[in-house]
Design a binder for these strands. Structure first.
Lengths: 336, 336
DNA sequence: GATATAATTGTAAGCGGTTACTATTTTATA
DNA sequence: TATAAAATAGTAACCGCTTACAATTATATC
């Protein structure tokens, strides 16, 4: 930290007290035009800029929020973060970014770090929101908004209806005449805490049941939300005895991997096997076949979460603590 | 900011002075085992955690670095940022993230904000590094590392050799027998400040010249580094009188757009027109045809930049202020 | 036991702001 | 013109920590 002019220097040069300087920079009324001018002039001359750090300490408010996500290099999260950043920018908040890789230890470590930095609040986006994490937040007493994850605890959140979304996607596949439908899902966490994949799987099962279709266990595989994982899972599905006519991947990236697996198995997509993804990343529309997918409003998940958190920090009323944003089926070329 | 125990509370409960408490938490020697224990006990009892904010003010060091990038939701940047974050995490630095959208105004605004937050240094990644921005950094006297952009000013940077990279890619196309090669580049900024696209264009031209190949102006189009832009540019190229046998897109995303344009024009990729991209984003290997591309070490650009900045902050010697990382040609299926 | 030395600990002044409270100056009102 | 009210300015305590310096205590040396 290079030294620079402080409030005393400015006060001295402008021949006023520090209080007056402070008032000028806080747009307080009750400061004469004359004083204001000379302060501004002195400040300019010295290249003075108030220290947000010192101000934060004095006011016990940092105008900073912490952001805990698994991995910013994952396009889903980078889009969410972009939404958060844009809203924060409007309200003059800054964000401290933390990549926790879904590791509970890292998450806890980051929460403590953010706390000791006095962030005004935290937006937490993780695959899991466990009792342990909940209690830590409760102990630390930091305003919290959950993004992308619902909870029964009294914590505000912004999500989509994952179950309904998967239900809709499955219904669409069924309406297209598909009967033997495979699924590539993510970690189910032993069905204990509810994670996205669990919700989505239930939605899938509901739709299948409703349509009276048989669910083949061997067509349902776990993967890791990555392209390679999707590829491997699809490959296994395709080499089984039950041949699927469609596969529902719980992420676009896994869907892309699955498409490659289909081609590598000597089949075509969508002619032989239809694929539907989840997320609607940018890449979904630039690949071939363009991906039919369930769109999540990632940017808005971030933006709404940020807006909620800032309201909570400012003690403003929030109309609804549990926000469920709309998903949307985007029909492109990977399903027929 | 919720109130919590401070150093005085702990000192009182532990029956020592605040100095001792501070010493305990800074692992100072010269504090007796007895005192250390009682401080730790008191701290635990009160749930005390030192305020990094107050510490930063007292020490004039925040252990925070500012990060200015155009757009975190762009996968290139999110990968760079991930590299930065991982290194910062190791060295106990935190990052404040700023999306400046390549807007000079936003960049300046963010620089000032970061300064008034006393960040220890800034990593700046923008398409442009102008005199104006350079001077602002110089005035503000903040340690700075440039990522992804070289400069003649005395500012450390981490880049790849864009000219050589484009040269290599072009040579590869030529070696495959291509002669009429198109280019989709980004903003050339009037060839004034050197931006990526300019360097790359020169590399392309060099290779063409060296091979004695004719460069067709109508095969060279400007675009915006987005898929749609790549699509439009390729479409224009394809409908001209000179038919290209290959197109070099200066980003993978534009390359993807171009592939779509090729198919929409009733042609095939790579059989009729080869495409080579730039970046080697994750998506490059999951699309069909898998993208032949010039790989940039995005994660490392971030990681190395962060390591350099932290060294500079700590006044350690850095062996080389101008780091040029290796690019790599990744051959997949989009070129034959 | 006296004295020198080393190990601990405490005191208090910063770091750069904000703000309650008080003091002073202006302006309005009678 | 005297006085009340409003506007403006200043003083100093405080936010929570670090650290130079001084003070105290324990240990070693003669």
């Amino acid at each position: 930290m290079v030294c620079m002019a402080n409030i005393d220097d400015v006060a001295k040069l402008a021949n006023v007290s520090t209080a007056t300087v402070s008032r000028v920079f806080n747009n307080s009324p009750y400061v004469s035009e004359k004083a204001r001018e000379s302060v501004l002039k002195a400040a300019k001359e010295l290249g003075y800029e108030p220290s947000i750090l010192a101000r934060s300490l004095a006011m016990k408010k940092t105008n900073t929020i912490g952001l805990i996500v698994p991995d910013i290099s994952n396009p889903y999260y980078s889009e969410v973060v972009r939404g958060i950043e844009d809203v924060c920018n409007i309200y003059k908040y800054n964000i401290i970014l933390c990549n926790a890789d879904n590791s509970r230890d890292k998450e806890i470590q980051y929460i403590d770090m953010l706390k000791s930095r006095w962030v005004d609040g935290i937006i937490f986006h993780s695959d899991y929101f466990s009792d342990e994490i909940y209690n830590i937040f409760k102990d630390r007493k930091i305003p919290l908004v959950l993004a992308g994850r619902a909870t029964n605890y009294d914590v505000p959140y912004v999500v989509i209806d994952n179950k309904k979304a998967a239900y809709d996607a499955t219904k669409y596949l069924i309406s297209q005449g598909h009967k033997k439908i495979g699924v590539i899902h993510g970690d189910l966490n032993g069905m204990k805490e509810t994670v996205d994949s669990v919700d989505r799987l239930y939605g899938f099962l509901d739709a299948m049941k409703e349509a009276g279709l048989k669910v083949y266990d061997e067509l349902i595989k776990e993967s890791n939300f990555k392209a390679k994982g999707g590829y491997i899972a699809a490959k296994e599905i395709l080499k089984g005895s039950v041949k699927p006519d469609a596969i529902f991947a719980f992420s676009d990236v896994m869907a892309m991997g699955a498409i490659n697996a289909i081609y590598d198995a000597g089949l075509r997509c969508p002619e032989d096997v239809s694929i539907i993804g989840f997320d609607n990343l940018d890449l979904a529309e630039v690949t071939r076949p363009a991906l039919t997918t369930v769109a999540q409003p990632m940017y808005d998940i971030g933006a709404v979460a940020a807006r909620m958190l800032i309201k909570i920090i400012d003690n403003k009323k929030i109309s609804e603590k549990r926000v469920i944003l709309k998903h949307r089926l985007i029909i492109r070329q990977s399903c027929i």
